[in-house]
């Protein structure tokens, strides 16, 4: 049996319907109409211990709702879920000492005082012994390189510094599962790299299972082998990121540098042709037109100075997936 077992989970929210205009607002003040939104609908998946799973989907797809259900904050309307043998929302107090959650958009650190003080408070909250606390704390401080940072009041930290402290705070009790809800949102390249490398490290060394939601596909590429794509509350794709690329990776971006002018080429397989600074950008479908054929044809009609072939970025891939499932 897998470590995390999610079976047919659904959750519906009741939202007051509001219409435009003052009159409508007044009307709704007295008589409210409600609409029901299926935040997640019949979701099932399994995750093995020590896996890193990227949980992706557009805004409002139900990512956060799923994370909240899995972490015991919300009770689903139907379905069940066993994580490490426990049902999160039924055995809350016992269950949550086993998980760590980082919300990229919300802080769990006390704003006006150094992060280290919050850490001390968490020690009591999780009933950690002095020895294990010191050990874990020092280790995290070293790994995340926050030796000096934890002594500065949190409000004076940069976002990247704060995020590193947030992550440390979520791991003081050595959880076996780590939920990361947009951990790299708004971070600069250096901070992103530190955070990613750290996640990889604890996953490897402590076999921490990581569930990661993000809109930054480079996070996913760097960390997760498996992705679960969710849209409109349903799971659309669950599997290897590599096979996803193969399935949709037939589109190539070809950047051609030339001084000549190329007229619009009418050839099957060329999706777009765009004039850019030094030359042209083509997007071709390799299932119809192979790269060698394309280049052969191009070199016949023009003098090529440089050619650059790129895979379609994973962002485009995701957009395509969204389109395919019309979400």
């Amino acid at each position: 049996m897998s470590f995390i077992n999610v079976n047919h989970i659904s959750k519906t929210f009741k939202v007051a319907k509001r219409e435009r205009g003052l009159l409508a607002s007044l009307k709704s003040f007295f008589k409210r109409e409600y609409i029901y939104i299926d935040a997640v609908k019949d979701i099932s998946f399994e995750i093995k211990k020590g896996e890193i799973v990227g949980y992706i989907g557009p805004n409002g797809a139900g990512k956060s709702t799923t994370i909240k259900i899995l972490s015991g904050i919300l009770t689903p309307d139907s379905g069940n879920c066993k994580i490490g043998g426990m049902t999160p929302w039924l055995e809350r107090e016992k269950y949550v000492s086993n998980i760590g959650v980082v919300f990229g958009q919300r802080s769990q650190l006390w704003w006006d005082i150094p992060a280290i003080d919050t850490f001390d408070l968490l020690k009591d909250i999780y009933n950690l012994s002095d020895k294990e606390y010191e050990e874990t704390k020092n280790n995290l401080i070293k790994l995340l390189d926050i030796e000096e940072i934890v002594k500065i009041p949190v409000r004076q930290l940069s976002l990247g510094q704060r995020m590193r402290c947030e992550i440390a705070a979520s791991l003081l009790h050595k959880p076996s599962i780590l939920f990361l809800d947009e951990p790299t949102i708004g971070l600069d390249a250096v901070s992103k790299k530190i955070v990613r490398e750290f996640i990889q490290k604890i996953n490897k060394e402590q076999k921490t299972t990581v569930i990661l939601t993000t809109h930054d596909m480079s996070d996913i590429e760097a960390l997760a082998k498996r992705i679960i794509l969710i849209g409109k509350g349903r799971i659309l794709y669950d599997g290897n990121i590599h096979s996803l690329k193969q399935k949709f990776g037939n589109i190539k971006n070809i950047n051609v540098d030339t001084k000549d002018t190329i007229k619009k080429i009418n050839k099957k397989g060329i999706i777009t042709q765009k004039k850019i600074d030094e030359g042209y950008l083509f997007q071709i479908d390799t299932n119809i037109l192979s790269i060698s054929n394309f280049l052969k044809y191009l070199s016949e009609i023009t003098n090529l100075e440089d050619v650059d072939i790129e895979n379609e970025s994973i962002d485009d891939l995701i957009i395509k997936l969204y389109k395919e499932f019309s979400i």
Binding site: K68, I73, E93, V96, S97, V101, F103, R106, Y126, N127
Partner: peptide, 14 residues
């Protein structure tokens, strides 16, 4: 309103 109540639910205490 600020969603901080979620955080409390994530901690193993009353």
């Amino acid at each position: 309103i600020r969603g901080e109540f979620d955080r409390l639910l994530l901690r193993p205490k009353n």
